[in-house]
């Protein structure tokens, strides 16, 4: 996997992910990323917010069922897009994958993590599992503005280009 991988997302969708994380705070939010993959650049055309199905520890865990995954795949198929990955929030924690994230990660998917600090969405990063499952490569996030000046894209979106991360 190239460390030059990029995902492009509109400021509207980026804001929706942030708002989802704020809305479920102090619990983790989660959802699907739909769009097109083209030679390392992924264009996110829609997101599918989903319910965190974790009953015991939704403040520090999320889980989606196989039925959720099938629903996301079906939604992608209906809209002529692909299921490119998943997003979730880390309440009061950095937007970096945990060891638990790594253990449960799938290759190829993009994993967007938004940090939500004291109820406010903060840093957002995207990651892809490396080939040998030992860690992640960071993906650059490009947020495309759509002229909505009243709600600027967050200045804290980071690309972390060329970075990599091994979960602690």
């Amino acid at each position: 996997m190239s460390s030059e991988a990029t995902i492009r997302i509109s400021d509207t969708l980026e804001r929706r992910i942030r708002e989802h994380g704020q809305g479920t705070y102090p619990n983790e939010c989660c959802g699907a990323l739909l769009g097109k993959d083209s030679e390392g650049v992924r264009e996110i055309s829609d997101i599918l917010p989903l319910k965190n199905q974790h009953k015991d520890s939704p403040r520090n865990r999320f889980i989606l069922t196989p039925e959720d995954v099938r629903e996301a795949e079906a939604q992608a198929k209906r809209t002529g897009s692909e299921l490119l990955g998943w997003y979730h929030s880390h309440p009061d924690a950095p937007a970096r994958p945990s060891e638990f994230d790594r253990e449960h990660a799938w290759p190829w998917y993009s994993y967007v993590i938004v940090s939500v600090k004291a109820g406010r969405a903060d840093e957002m990063n995207s990651w892809r599992l490396v080939e040998d499952r030992s860690g992640y490569d960071a993906e650059k996030i490009e947020v495309n503005g759509q002229g909505d000046e009243s709600t600027p894209a967050s200045p804290t979106s980071t690309g972390a280009k060329n970075a990599s991360h091994k979960a602690p």
Partner: peptide, 11 residues
């Protein structure tokens, strides 16, 4: 083969 998706902030 159908994935479950899971994760969370705690290691």
């Amino acid at each position: 083969i159908v994935p479950s998706i899971a994760g969370g902030k705690l290691g």
